[in-house]
């Protein structure tokens, strides 16, 4: 009883030729419909994803390279800035040294000048004082002498005499 069913066209005495056509038509129509409505869009989206992934990888690679380049640029810039800063500091130091020297020399000169002028003033003051002392001494001497001598000699003669004496005394000193 089962054996009948294992023969081609089972269940019927004749070959179900209509089934063949039905199978073909249904399968092919299904395939076309699926291609249009399901597989096509799905394949499209998978393709799109593949492209997206590829482009993303490319972009990432590019960004990596760019950032690397940027980093190098920044590094070199930093180095440049550092050397520049160093040179600026050095220049400033040198200039400072120079300025210091200048200021020192100016100050030293000024001090010398002040000292010299002070010395000169002292000298002249001293001269003046000596002259004044001399004058005083002369007039005192004259006074003393006139008191001692009580003799009226002309003051002019006297004076000349005394001055001479003093000058001599000055020379002797």
């Amino acid at each position: 009883m089962f054996l009948d069913n294992l023969v081609l066209g089972a269940g019927g005495a004749s070959l179900n030729s209509g089934d063949i056509i039905a199978t073909l038509v249904i399968f092919i129509v299904l395939m076309l419909l699926l291609k249009k409505f399901a597989w096509g869009p799905l394949m499209g989206i998978m393709q799109q994803r593949e492209e997206l992934v590829a482009s993303e990888i490319e972009a990432a690679e590019k960004a990596r390279k760019e950032s690397h380049q940027f980093l190098e640029e920044q590094k070199s810039l930093l180095k440049e800035a550092r050397t520049e800063a160093q040179s600026i500091v050095e220049g400033a130091k040198k200039q400072g040294e120079l300025q210091k020297e200048e200021i020192l020399t100016v100050a030293r000169n000024e001090a010398n000048r002040l000292k010299e002028s002070a010395l000169r003033e002292i000298e002249s003051e001293k001269e003046k004082a000596i002259a004044a002392v001399r004058d005083e001494v002369v007039s005192l001497s004259v006074l003393a002498a006139s008191k001692v001598l009580s003799k009226e000699i002309s003051e002019a003669d006297n004076r000349a005499l005394i001055e001479e004496t003093i000058a001599k005394a000055g020379e002797a000193r």
Partner: peptide, 16 residues
Amino acid sequence: FLTFNLSTVMMLLVAA
């Protein structure tokens, strides 16, 4: 001249 097995056709359609 075609013989259709209606159950087969129906099941094919259901599967499809």
